[in-house]
């Protein structure tokens, strides 16, 4: 799976989670940049991502997530 494909799928997830179709994802996007991105939403994003790509993120991987780029990287490492 290519990086653009992962971004496209994550954009769909973010659109539903934040009810916004104008969010443009990039590697440096963090929770601070998106209003309403709290710990609940963080869990929603992770679980939706796991379901969408049929993967499971481990505790250490979750702890390391700092921005969208990290999430894309961890998905790519499992679906690469």
């Amino acid at each position: 799976m290519t990086e653009p494909e992962i971004y496209a799928a994550l954009t769909e997830i973010f659109a539903d989670v934040f009810m916004r179709d104008d969010l443009v994802l990039n590697a440096s996007l963090t929770a601070k940049d998106v209003p309403g991105w709290d710990s609940f939403k963080q869990i929603e994003i992770v679980i939706a991502t796991e379901e969408r790509f049929d993967i499971k993120l481990h505790t250490r991987e979750l702890d390391r997530l700092q921005n969208v780029g990290d999430l894309v990287a961890v998905v790519a490492s499992k679906k690469g």
Binding site: I13, D16, V17, M19, E44, I47, A48, E51
Partner: peptide, 8 residues
Amino acid sequence: VDFVRTNA
């Protein structure tokens, strides 16, 4: 609806 859409 999945859980994300349910919450939305």
